[in-house]
């Protein structure tokens, strides 16, 4: 602190894209660390799908297999039936619910205002959030698959093609969810109301998109409503990976419709990016 303070020459090059990426990487580590130190997000976002999978699998075990023959043979276990939906829900929670409430809180508690006064690029902040979403969601996914396989004996697919489908549905889904989380964080007027504003619509989406209730059992009009939103398409894509081919028959139109899933998710991703670009501000300017 004894060195005389020189007016540092401002090197424009030092504020380029390289710096943005480097700071983004630093933000990912920081954000992920903070995520796992928050006991409430850990429960409601990170562990929630595993807990729900466990509850449903145990509770409905007595009802026998899904899609079984009249004599009780064949079909798949309740756990296997719920796994794709829970994976899709996990993707949605890790992105939309996690970032939506997190950023709304940060806006109201002064975190964003403080960051806005530093030379941190907005893009680095976004990278940090999206990296945190990806890192925590991959761990959540691994936990979900391990519990399903080892605790409930769910057979995981062995064909590489299935895992390829899984990879793109997952990556497109998680990117869309993260972007929508940033976009939706603008809605709550205060940090206190963030969970109240964001969690209910997400819960409703889970009920109408084939997470907790079998999608095929919902009335047509409700299926049509759910088809507007991305969760239905993530769940459908995941069913195509984890359920036997014969189950495609009960999907709308009798097919998995992966092309439809890709298009729907891409539209939401692009729309979300545009909304983020247009609406994100470090603080609510008052003028």
């Amino acid at each position: 602190m004894t060195a005389a303070l020189q007016a540092p020459a401002t090197r424009a090059s030092s504020f380029g894209i390289g710096r943005t990426l480097r700071l983004g990487a630093a933000r990912i580590g920081y954000e992920t660390k903070v995520y796992f130190r928050q006991s409430d997000t850990l429960f409601f976002t990170f562990l929630f799908p595993v807990i729900m999978l466990t509850i449903f699998s145990v509770a409905f075990q007595g009802m026998g297999n899904i899609g079984a023959n009249p004599d009780g043979s064949g079909g798949i276990s309740q756990a296997a039936g719920y796994l794709p939906g829970m994976i899709a829900a996990g993707i949605l929670l890790s992105g939309v619910q996690n970032l939506g409430t997190d950023i709304a809180m940060e806006r109201s508690d002064g975190t964003l205002k403080r960051l806005g006064g530093t030379p941190l690029p907005v893009l680095s902040y976004f990278f940090g959030k999206m990296g945190q979403v990806l890192a925590t969601s991959l761990l959540q996914l691994a936990l979900l698959l391990l519990v399903a396989h080892f605790a409930f004996g769910v057979d995981l697919p062995t064909e590489p093609a299935k895992w390829m489908t899984f990879a793109w549905v997952y990556l497109l889904g998680i990117a869309t969810s993260a972007v929508l989380g940033i976009a939706i964080s603008r809605l709550p007027r205060s940090g206190k109301s963030a969970t109240a504003v964001i969690i209910p619509p997400i819960l409703i989406l889970q009920f109408i998109s084939g997470v907790y209730l079998q999608f095929a059992l919902l009335p047509d009009w409700l299926q049509s409503v759910a088809s507007i939103f991305p969760l239905k398409w993530m769940a459908q894509g995941m069913r195509s990976v984890f359920l036997p081919e014969s189950f495609a028959a009960v999907e709308p139109g009798g097919v998995w419709n992966l092309a439809g899933a890709a298009i729907a998710l891409l539209i939401w991703l692009v729309g979300g990016l545009v909304i983020c670009r247009l609406t994100f501000r470090w603080i609510r300017k008052d003028s």
């Binding site: 007016a7 401002t10 504020f15 903070v34 130190r37 002064g110 975190t111 205002k113 006064g117």
Partner: peptide, 21 residues
Amino acid sequence: GLAWKARIGIVLQSSGESGNV
């Protein structure tokens, strides 16, 4: 811009960050 922000330091009035670091 960012280069300008790098030359200033700001201590705001009280803030209530969650503080998990």
